[in-house]
Each structure stands twice: as C-alpha cells, then as structure tokens.
Amino acid sequence: MTTPCGASLSLPAPRPPRSPLRRAVASAPMRVSFAGGGSDLPGVARHGGGRVVGAAIDLRVRAVVEPFDRGWVRMESAARAARAAGHPAEDAGAGAARVLTRRRGDPPRDDVAFRLIEAALSVVGVGDGVAIRIETEMAPGAGLGGSASAAVAALFALRASVGEVAAPEELGREAVAIERERLSNACGAQDQVFAAFGGLLDLSFDARGCSAVRPLPVGSPDLVSALSSGLLLVDTEVRRVSGEVLDRMDAGAAIDARGELVAAAADVARGFEVGSLPLVLSGMRRGAAAKVRLSGPASALALALGQRLDGLGVEVLRVCGAGGGGHVLVWAPAERHARILDALGACVVRRQALGAPGVRAEPG
C-alpha cells in the first residue's frame, strides 16, 4: 500500500490557547536510513525527486502531557541515563533535566532546549495550564532523527490531551513544518515520516516534502533479522545541529549526488523485495560512497572510524543523518562483532531492532 503525503507543509494559523483535558503519553521511534539520505532535502528533491529506504528503530522518544496550574506553562526536557545494548559503556549523551515555567501569554522562550516544545504547543493550540515533558535516551544531535521523534510524539500527546486524533501523514507534515518554518532548520523530511509511520519504509520526495510512503516488501522472512543482527550504531559522542551541517554542504554537489543516492535506495529496495541480503548491503555501500563524495568533511569521523576498523570484516560503514558527528552505522556479520567491539574500546555501541512501530499512545 502506498500512502500519499504530498499536501502543503504550511502550518495552520495559531489557535487561542486551550488547556489539556487529561494526561496523555506518547512515544515515537528514531530511525536509520539504509540509502538515499540527502536526496530528501527540498533543494535536492526538486531536481528529479528523492528516495530514501530505511527503518524505524526501537529507540524511542517519549512525550508526557498533563494538566497544570491555570495561567502557566511548564516545559521539561530530560535525557535519561541508559546503558547501550551489548556494550558496557554508559551513554555519554545523557544529562540532567532542564525545566522552564512561564506565564500563559508570555512570548515563547528562544532557548534551544525548548523551541521545539514551544512550536508544538503553538501548532496544537495547547497553551494554558499545561505541563509537557520530553524524555529521550540521548541528547539531540545524535544523527538518528531524535528531534523529529520528539516533535511527532509531542504533537500526538498534545492532541490526545484535548481529545483529538491525527493521522500519521498529518503528524509528519506538521513536524517537518515546525522544523522548517518555526525553527528555520534546513532539513529533509524522512525523520518525521519514520517517527510517524514506523516500520520498514520506502519513501519518495519532491520539493514540498514526502510525496509517498510505501512499506518495504520483504521477500524473505529471515532478511530483516539477518540485517538487524549485523547492525552496530557507533556513537561518536559528537553532538551537532543537522541544519548547520547541511548549511555548509555544497548545493551543487548535493544536486549532482542525487542520482546516485536515489539509485542506491532503489538497489536496497530491490534487495528487500527479492530477499537478498547481499543486494541490500551492496546498495548500502553504494549510498555510503555517494555520501562521502557529497561531503567529505561531514563524513570525516566515519572515515576515521573506517581506518580504525580496517581489516576486521566491516562490510558497510556510513554516517547517520547529516554527518558531522552523531552515530556511524557499521554492518558486519555477527561473528565478527567481538573483534570490532574490542577495537572500538570505550565507544558506546547500540544494537537496535529494525521495524519499530510508529508513534503510539503509551500507558500513563
């Protein structure tokens, strides 16, 4: 089934502030893209379209909305300390909660930790007697789409708190518009779609954003488990703003790379369809090479990591997201992981399942 997502990205006019009727909790997944990332940027996709193939992962951002004192708005952003699966190191991105309380009607605070929350409150029109908390297992800038997950989870929970329901495509569009219009952040549109829909997806893009969402057909029931078992997400411990990385990217180089990025995504999609892990990995390598050609500086940490792991049987190595920090995707057969982990030393390494469900209500 293909879901069209091509409506305008413009946000609705601000609503009069209203109060939540009930407590609501939601969570949305982060993502990894296998190939095509970068072709979803609006300035690139308008030159023939973009395509991204990837998966939501079982690393989630949680939003909690509940009634608060009338006349006040309370916002909280918290990164929970968490151990990375399969590795003894602690998550270096975790930190203490940040809290801000302001009066209803005060102008939104231009604090980077709360700008996204302020924008979600404004879009849904919940702005009086409300407390909202965003919980994540890592600080923003990890290259796994965490900001988009936070936006989608917040929009879902805020709507649920006033008895509203929104379709995944609407939540994805609003989350993209928040980043582009309210936060002035140069970004693609894949992260928000993965957060809203979840699963294994084949996405198409035009200049406005995501134009079609297709669940990936999987030709072999063993393919996803084989791909997941070999996947390692290596944390560089460098956090960055993706929009700033993309602003430094050469626009002409990005347009030139579009065809190769889209072709790599097509290879991966074909590999899933016929149930061929070698074809999926070949497409991932093709996409990784295109991203290096697109921006060497943004891939510098991944290239350095590749030198460190040279000779250990790594078959795919690529930056996650815009690069410039965050996580590096490494794929190797599971039997080679012990040597790879030894070479990585104290690095935080995550092993996440693929195909996590999209945004959903959670028990309170």
Rank of each mutant, 00 (worst) to 15 (best):
G198V: 00
G199C: 05
L200E: 03
L200F: 06
L201D: 03
L201P: 05
D202N: 09
L203N: 01
L203K: 04
L203R: 08
L203H: 06
S204G: 15
A207G: 03
A207L: 01
R208C: 13
G209N: 02
C210W: 09
C210H: 12
S211D: 06
S211W: 01
V213N: 09
R214I: 08
R214N: 12
R214G: 14
L216G: 04
L216A: 08
P217I: 00
V218N: 06
V218Y: 09
G219W: 01
G219I: 07
S220L: 04
D222P: 06
D222Q: 15
L223H: 04
V224K: 03
V224A: 00
S225N: 11
S225F: 06
A226C: 10
L227I: 13
S228N: 06
G230T: 09
G230H: 09
G230C: 12
L231Q: 04
L231I: 00
L232W: 02
L232G: 07
L232S: 00
L232Q: 00
L232V: 09
D235H: 05
T236R: 02
E237Y: 10
V238Q: 14
V238F: 10
V238L: 14
V238S: 13
R239C: 03
R239Q: 05
R240E: 05
V241A: 00
G243R: 02
E244I: 00
V245A: 03
V245F: 01
L246I: 15
D247L: 08
D247F: 04
D247Q: 06
D247E: 14
D247H: 12
R248N: 08
G252M: 02
G252N: 11
G252Y: 04
A254Y: 11
I255W: 11
I255N: 11
D256C: 08
D256P: 05
A257G: 01
A257D: 05
A257Q: 05
A257Y: 00
A257S: 11
A257L: 07
R258E: 03
E260L: 14
L261W: 13
L261G: 13
L261C: 14
V262G: 10
A263M: 01
A263R: 02
A264M: 03
A264I: 01
A265K: 00
A265M: 07
A265W: 02
A266V: 13
A266L: 12
D267T: 15
D267M: 15
D267P: 10
V268F: 03
A269G: 15
A269K: 01
A269L: 07
R270W: 04
R270P: 05
G271K: 13
F272A: 00
F272N: 05
F272Y: 10
F272S: 06
E273W: 06
E273P: 13
E273I: 05
E273R: 15
E273Q: 15
V274K: 14
V274F: 09
L277M: 06
L277I: 02
P278D: 00
P278Q: 06
P278L: 00
P278C: 02
V280D: 07
G283M: 12
M284Y: 10
R285F: 04
R286Y: 08
R286E: 11
R286G: 15
A289W: 13
A289F: 13
A290T: 12
A290F: 09
A290Q: 09
V292G: 10
V292W: 10
R293H: 11
L294S: 08
L294Y: 04
L294D: 07
L294I: 11
S295W: 09
S295P: 08
S295A: 11
G296Q: 15
P297W: 11
